[in-house]
C-alpha cells in the first residue's frame, strides 16, 4: 500500500464512523431498533470473517464457533463485573481465553478430517455450554445479568475493522498461504513440508480469538448472557453467513454478515419462517454455487470495480 492509499483508506473509514456516530448520537436519525441492528451487523461480520478463516480458508468445517463466543462473553463479563477490569482489557482477555481454548480443543480434534472434525467441534461447543450451565458462579442456566452496557457503535466499529484488517493480513501472509494450501490439498501440503497440525490449530485458535471478541462485544451490549444464547444455532448462523458470502472470501464474509443482519431486521415479521429461508438458501448455494456467492475469489476487487459504479450510482442518491 502506498502512503496515499493508506490515507484514503483511513479517511474513508473515519468518515463512515463519523457519519454513523453523528446520525446516532447527535442528529438522532437512527432509532433504537436500527442501533441494535448496527451492533449486530458488527458482531456478525466479526463472526463470519473469523469463521471463514477456519472453514473457508483452511477448509476445516468447525461447528463450535458459538462456544468460543461464549468463552469470550463470559470471561469479559466476569472481568468487568467482578474484578473491575476496564472494558477493552476485559474483551481482549476474553479473546485470549478463547484463543487458548481454541488451542486446547484444536490440537486433538484437528487431526480428524472433515465429518469427524465437524462432529467433534460441535461436541465441544456443546460441552462448553453444558459446563457453563453447571457453574453457579456464572449463574447457571439463568446466566449473568446486569453486565455494564459499554459496547456502542464506536467500539463495535473499531473491533470490526481491526478484525477484518488482521485476518486480511494473516491471509496474505506466508502463514495464510500455508492454510490455503492445506485447504486445497492436505496430503500434498504435508508432503511439501507444511506442518499441517500447526497451521490448522493456528487458524482455528485465531478464529476462536475473534469469536471471543464478538462474544465480549455481545455481552456488553445485550448486558445479559445465558448458555442457551450460545447454542448450536448460533454456530449454524455463523456457518450460513460464511457459506452465503463465499468460502474463502473476506469481502464475501463481510457482505454476508451485513446482509444476514439486514435480512433478519427486514424480515422480522416473518418470525420462524426466516430460518426456513436461510436453510433453503444454504442448500441452494451449495447446489448451484458450492464455493459461496462470492466464490473463493479472495482478490475480487476487479469484479467489484465492474459492479460498483452502477450500483453505487443508483443507491447513493
Amino acid at each position: 500500500m502506498t502512503k496515499k492509499q493508506i490515507l484514503v483508506l483511513s479517511s474513508t473509514l473515519f468518515f463512515v464512523w463519523f457519519v454513523v456516530y453523528m446520525a446516532t448520537d447527535v442528529w438522532g436519525l437512527i432509532n433504537s431498533f436500527q442501533q441494535v441492528n448496527i451492533i449486530w451487523a458488527g458482531i456478525n461480520v466479526i463472526l463470519a470473517v473469523s469463521l471463514n478463516l477456519v472453514v473457508g480458508f483452511t477448509g476445516q468445517l468447525a461447528l463450535g464457533h458459538a462456544g468460543f463466543m461464549a468463552v469470550g462473553a463470559y470471561t469479559s463479563a466476569v472481568l468487568t463485573m467482578h474484578f473491575g477490569i476496564p472494558y477493552v482489557l476485559a474483551i481482549l482477555a476474553g479473546a485470549v481465553m478463547a484463543f487458548f481454548m481454541g488451542i486446547v480443543i484444536g490440537l486433538p480434534t484437528l487431526r480428524l478430517r472433515g465429518d469427524y472434525l465437524a462432529i467433534a467441534t460441535l461436541g465441544f461447543g456443546e460441552i462448553i455450554r453444558g459446563v457453563l450451565v453447571n457453574i453457579d458462579y456464572v449463574g447457571g442456566a439463568a446466566g449473568i445479568n446486569g453486565i455494564a452496557k459499554i459496547t456502542n457503535w464506536t467500539w463495535t466499529y473499531i473491533f470490526t475493522i481491526i478484525t477484518v484488517v488482521l485476518i486480511n493480513n494473516f491471509i496474505h501472509s506466508l502463514h495464510g498461504k500455508a492454510c490455503i494450501t492445506i485447504r486445497d490439498d492436505e496430503v500434498a501440503s504435508e508432503l511439501m513440508g507444511i506442518n499441517t497440525t500447526y497451521y490448522k490449530t493456528l487458524a482455528f485458535s485465531m478464529g476462536a480469538f475473534f469469536a471471543g471478541i464478538a462474544g465480549g462485544l455481545y455481552a456488553h451490549y445485550f448486558f445479559m448472557i445465558q448458555p442457551a444464547t450460545f447454542a448450536l444455532q448460533k454456530s449454524f448462523d455463523a456457518l450460513v453467513m460464511v457459506v452465503l458470502g463465499g468460502l474463502g472470501s473476506i469481502t464475501g464474509a463481510v457482505l454476508a454478515g451485513l446482509g444476514v443482519t439486514f435480512m433478519n431486521a427486514a424480515l422480522i415479521e416473518l418470525g420462524a419462517f426466516r430460518m426456513v429461508i436461510y436453510s433453503v438458501l444454504l442448500i441452494l448455494v451449495m447446489m448451484f454455487r458450492p464455493q459461496g456467492l462470492m466464490g473463493n475469489k479472495e482478490f475480487s476487487a476487479r469484479v467489484f470495480d465492474r459492479i460498483l459504479p452502477k450500483r453505487g450510482g443508483k443507491d447513493d442518491v
Partner: peptide
C-alpha cells in the same frame, strides 16, 4: 486496498 474501501462503502450503504 480497494477492497477495504469497498467494504467501508458497503458498510455505509448497509447502515
Amino acid at each position: 486496498m480497494k477492497r477495504i474501501m469497498l467494504i467501508a462503502f458497503i458498510a455505509l450503504l448497509a447502515v
